[in-house]
Simulated assay, not measured.
Amino acid sequence: MDELKAAGLVRPGRGRGGTLTLAFGHVRETATARGRVRASGQWSRPDVVAVEVWSSPLLPDVELTISSFEIKRASEANRLGSLHETAAHGRWAHHPSLVVETASVEDEFPLHDDILLELDRLKLGLYTMYNLGDGTFRVEQHVFPPRQTPDLGDLHNFLDHFFSEGEMLLKKYRQAIGR
């Protein structure tokens, strides 16, 4: 998860000439731990989620941005189901993205052409995460997804879950949004 933060996955294209500043940002692993079966047997949450609040001293409102990252090995990422799982997170994420994990930097681009076409059709972001062999990864952005507009009720429910384990974090978030 540190590599995802360090790679700047959650801050692409921000700042727009210095007009917006990050008032709140937190990245959290939200998926079920590896090796455990999901109780529902259904897609639930992406592997990693970033919640950001952007503000400007001259604008009356803040901008909430939720980015989701579904991490898959290359063999799993070449299945339509992986794209549809990533797209399902768009019901509450502004920027859903697929992160494809490969074994090394030398690996060829991991996705087949038909998968890339579907990724574009679904308006998903695409990153690759290369294992550097020392327990760390290098993350590269290939496609940044256009902003989606999730339902406000779904956003509320997700944020309720996201902040369920941290009262202090929730307090910082509320301060950033002016509540």
Rank of each mutant, 00 (worst) to 15 (best):
K123I: 07
R91W: 00
N78V: 05
L132H: 05
N157G: 10
H84N: 13
D114T: 09
L132V: 11
D120N: 07
M129V: 03
S97D: 06
T128H: 12
R91H: 04
I71W: 00
H95K: 09
L80H: 09
E70H: 01
T102R: 13
H89F: 10
P145L: 05
D113M: 11
S68G: 14
E70N: 02
L132E: 13
V100H: 03
L124I: 06
Q148H: 14
Y130K: 08
S67E: 07
H142R: 13
A93D: 03
D114M: 10
H112E: 10
D113L: 13
F144A: 12
E63T: 06
Y127F: 00
H89E: 03
H95N: 10
E108D: 13
H94A: 02
E63R: 12
R121L: 11
F69L: 12
Q148E: 06
H94V: 00
W92Y: 15
D154A: 07
L116D: 09
E85P: 06
L117G: 05
P110R: 15
N157M: 07
I71R: 01
T149S: 15
D113F: 12
E63P: 02
T128G: 10
E118Y: 13
D107R: 15
R138H: 05
H156V: 00
G133D: 09
N157F: 04
E101A: 15
A103M: 05
D113V: 08
S75R: 12
D154H: 04
H112Y: 08
F137R: 12
L83V: 03
H94N: 04
V99Q: 06
P110F: 15
A74G: 14
K123W: 09
F137H: 14
R147N: 04
R147I: 02
R147W: 01
E70Y: 01
V143C: 14
E140G: 06
E140Y: 05
A93E: 02
E63A: 12
A88C: 12
P96Q: 14
V62K: 08
D154L: 01
I115Q: 15
I71D: 00
L111K: 15
S97R: 12
I115V: 13
D151N: 14
L83W: 08
E140R: 11
A103K: 11
E140A: 10
D154C: 01
T65A: 12
G125R: 03
A93H: 03
P145A: 07
F137C: 13
G90N: 11
V105C: 06
